[in-house]
Design a protein around this nucleic acid. Structure first.
Length: 587
DNA sequence: AGCCCACGGGG
DNA sequence: GTGTACGTGGGCT
C-alpha cells in the first residue's frame, strides 16, 4: 500500500459495474511539479433518513424493499432527539426513484436528507475540503490515457485524511474568444471563431488566430479547425488547476462547443480525457471540464461587487480604478475585415481581455477559494452559488458535525406560502449639507444579536418564564437562554475563529502570510454576516420567520437606542439604515 | 395594485 | 444528477 498527498481540486462520481465510485481530482504539488491525480473511492454508499410513525412497523414495511441496509439512529431535529431509520442504498440514482415511494408509505412521516448530492455528502462525511490537501492510501493503477500530462490513477483503500495546510500555488489559465458578425452578435451557424486568447498567472500570453500578425504573441493557424485543436492542446499542455473567463458559461464555451461540433474537433479537455460538457444549473448552463475547475468570473463578480452593470470593462474599472482598453462590439467585424493596423489593434484588445480576466482572478479568486475552504464544497459550485446558498451548505456540514438532521428544502407550495420579512430600521435623512459627520457601523449587528439573544429555530418556544428566555421587542417571540441554539453556536464559532485569525494577522511579519490571513478572515466575516439571512430567505432550509422578524426588531431597537444615547453625548443623527447611522457632532 | 415577462453577460 | 437561478423593472390589464 502506498500513500499519496495532493491538493483536492474537484470531485464527482462515476458508475463502474453498477456501483458508484467517487473520484477525487487533484494535483500533486512539489518543486515545480504539476502532476494530476484521480483518486477513486469505491467504498462510499448513498443513504437517506426516514422518520417513522412507529419504528418497528416502518422497519418491516421498508424491509420489503430491496435496500442495502436499515439502521436505527438517534438524531437531533430542531433541538429534539428523535429515532430515525438510516437507509443505505446501492446507488445514488436510486434515491430519487425510491424516496417518493418511501414517503408515500403509511408508516412513514417523512424522508430527510434525500436531496444532498452524492459528492457533497462524501465531502461532508469524510471531513474533506476542496482547495485543501488530502492524504490517501491505496494502490496506483495503470493509466489508460496518453495525454501529455498523464494523470495518476489511484484506488483508495481506507479513509482519506484531510490535511490542514496553507494553499499551494494555483495555476490559472484565462481565455477569451472572438467571433464577429457585420450586423451584431456573432451567430454560431455562420460566424467562425477568428481568434482565441490565452493568459496564465504564470506568464503565458498568446493569441491564436486564423490571420497572421506582425506581433510575436500572435500565432497563425491554417483554419478554424486547427485553431480549436490548438486551444485543446494548449489547455492539456499547460494543465492548469483553474480555467477562467468572463461569461464563459453563457458565451465562450457554448460557442466553442457548437463550432467544434460542426468542424469535428473533439474537446477532450478533461483530466480524465472526457469532453467538455454542460450542466443545467437552473435556467443557465455551466460549462464543466472534469478535473479542472472552470470558474466563470461573471457570476462571481455579481456577488462580490455592487454595481449598476457588470461588463468586463466596468468590473475592471471598479477593481483597478483605471480604464481597460476596449473595442466596441460593432467594430470587431470591420477590424477583422480591414486588416492592417486595425487588425493589430484587435489582437491586442483580445489578449488584453484575457489578461484582464487573469488580473481580476488574481484579485478575487483568493476570496472564492477561502470561502470554498470554509464551506467545504467545490470551487466550481461555490463560484456559482448565491451567498445564502453558500451559508446553507456551511450549515449542512455543521449539522452533520453536531449530529443534527438537516431540514428539508421547502416545496414550491411552502415557498409560495412563506412571507418575506420586514427590513431593518431606516430613518429618512435630514436634508442638507452636514459638517462633522460620523458613521456608527452596525454591520455585524445581526450576527451578534443572534448570539446574544440565542435566536435559533431550536430555541424558539411558544411559552416560557420571563427569566429563562429572551423576548423580542414588537413581535414578542421568545427564545430559550439555554441551551445554545444551532445557528448561534455556529456563528459564535465563526466569529471566534475570525478573532483568532485577526490576532494571528497582527503577529504575522510576512506580508504574504498576512494577506492570506486577511482573505480568510474576510471569508469568515462574509459567512457570519450572511447567516442571519438564512432565516429570512423563503426557499431556505433554516427559514424561520419568527427568528428573522425578531432579529430585525432587536436591530431596530438597538439602532434607535444608540441614536438616542448618542444625542446625550452631543451627536445629532441625520440618517439611518439597517447597518448603522450617520450623525453630526453638535457638541 | 397585481401579474407577466424579459433581462443580465458575451461579439 | 440525492439537480432545475434570481431578483428586478417595465409594460400591461
Amino acid at each position: 500500500m502506498e500513500r499519496k498527498r495532493f491538493l483536492l481540486l474537484d470531485i464527482d462520481y462515476v458508475t463502474e459495474n453498477d456501483e458508484a465510485v467517487i473520484r477525487l481530482f487533484g494535483k500533486i504539488k512539489g518543486d515545480g511539479e504539476n502532476k494530476s491525480i484521480i483518486a477513486k473511492d469505491k467504498s462510499f454508499k448513498p443513504y437517506i433518513y426516514v422518520y417513522p410513525h412507529e419504528i418497528q412497523e416502518c422497519m418491516e414495511e421498508l424491509g420489503e424493499l430491496n435496500l442495502k441496509k436499515i439502521e436505527k439512529v438517534r438524531k437531533k431535529d430542531v433541538g429534539i432527539y428523535k429515532e430515525f431509520l438510516k437507509i443505505t442504498l446501492k446507488h445514488p440514482q436510486e434515491v430519487p426513484k425510491l424516496r417518493e415511494k418511501i414517503w408515500s408509505m403509511d408508516t412513514v412521516v417523512e424522508v430527510r436528507e434525500h436531496d444532498i448530492p452524492f459528492y457533497r455528502r462524501y465531502l461532508i462525511d469524510k471531513g474533506l475540503f476542496p482547495m485543501q490537501e488530502v492524504e490517501v492510501q491505496g494502490t496506483s493503477m495503470e493509466s489508460s490515457f496518453s495525454s501529455p500530462e498523464d494523470p495518476c490513477i489511484f484506488e483508495i483503500d481506507g479513509e482519506p485524511l484531510p490535511i490542514s495546510t496553507g494553499l499551494p500555488e494555483i495555476k490559472v489559465l484565462s481565455f477569451d474568444i472572438e467571433a464577429c458578425n457585420p450586423k451584431g452578435m456573432p451567430q454560431v451557424k455562420q460566424d467562425p471563431i477568428i481568434m482565441i486568447s490565452l493568459s496564465s498567472n504564470q506568464g503565458f500570453k498568446k493569441v491564436y488566430s486564423t490571420k497572421p500578425s506582425k506581433n510575436d504573441f500572435v500565432e497563425e493557424l491554417s483554419s478554424e479547425k486547427e485553431l480549436l485543436q490548438k486551444f485543446v492542446d494548449v489547455v492539456k499542455n499547460e494543465n492548469p488547476d483553474l480555467i477562467t473567463g468572463y461569461n464563459t458559461d453563457i458565451f465562450d464555451f457554448p460557442y466553442i462547443r457548437d463550432r467544434a461540433a460542426r468542424l469535428g474537433v473533439t474537446l477532450d479537455l478533461g483530466v480524465d480525457g472526457s469532453e467538455l460538457k454542460f450542466m443545467r444549473r437552473g435556467f443557465a448552463n455551466s460549462a464543466v471540464i472534469k478535473g479542472r475547475i472552470h470558474v466563470d468570473l461573471y457570476p462571481s463578480m455579481r456577488r462580490f461587487l455592487q454595481l449598476d452593470r457588470y461588463t468586463l470593462e466596468r468590473v475592471y474599472l471598479e477593481i483597478f480604478e483605471k480604464e481597460k482598453k476596449d473595442i466596441n462590439g460593432d467594430e470587431i467585424h470591420s477590424c477583422w475585415a480591414d486588416g492592417g493596423e486595425r487588425l493589430e489593434e484587435l489582437f491586442e484588445y483580445s489578449l488584453d481581455d484575457a489578461v484582464a480576466v487573469t488580473k481580476i482572478g488574481e484579485e478575487m479568486l483568493p476570496l472564492s477559494m477561502a470561502i470554498t475552504r470554509l464551506v467545504g464544497q467545490p470551487l466550481f459550485d461555490i463560484s456559482r452559488m448565491a451567498t445564502g446558498q453558500q451559508v446553507e451548505w456551511y450549515l449542512i456540514r455543521k449539522a452533520y458535525e453536531y449530529g443534527d438532521i438537516v431540514p428539508n428544502k421547502p416545496s414550491a407550495a411552502k415557498v409560495a406560502n412563506r412571507r418575506r420579512i420586514e427590513g431593518g430600521y431606516v430613518k429618512e435623512p435630514v436634508l442638507g449639507l452636514h459638517k462633522n459627520v460620523v458613521y456608527f457601523d452596525f454591520r455585524s449587528l445581526y450576527p451578534s444579536i443572534i448570539i446574544s439573544r440565542n435566536v435559533s429555530p431550536d430555541t424558539l418556544v411558544d411559552e416560557c418564564d420571563e427569566e429563562n428566555c429572551y423576548t423580542a421587542p414588537e413581535v414578542g417571540s421568545k427564545f430559550l437562554k439555554e441551551p445554545v441554539g444551532f445557528v448561534p453556536s455556529v456563528i459564535g464559532n465563526v466569529l471566534n475563529e475570525r478573532v483568532k485569525i485577526k490576532s494571528r494577522m497582527k503577529e504575522a511579519t510576512d506580508p504574504r502570510e498576512r494577506h492570506v490571513l486577511d482573505v480568510q478572515q474576510e471569508a469568515l466575516k462574509r459567512v457570519a454576516n450572511t447567516m442571519y439571512g438564512v432565516y429570512g430567505f423563503i426557499r431556505f432550509r433554516w427559514y424561520c420567520l419568527e427568528c428573522a422578524d425578531s432579529i430585525t426588531a432587536w436591530g431596530r431597537e438597538f439602532i434607535k437606542n444608540t441614536m438616542k444615547e448618542s444625542e446625550k453625548s452631543g451627536f445629532k443623527p441625520i440618517y439611518a439604515d439597517t447597518d448603522g447611522f450617520y450623525a453630526t457632532y453638535v457638541g
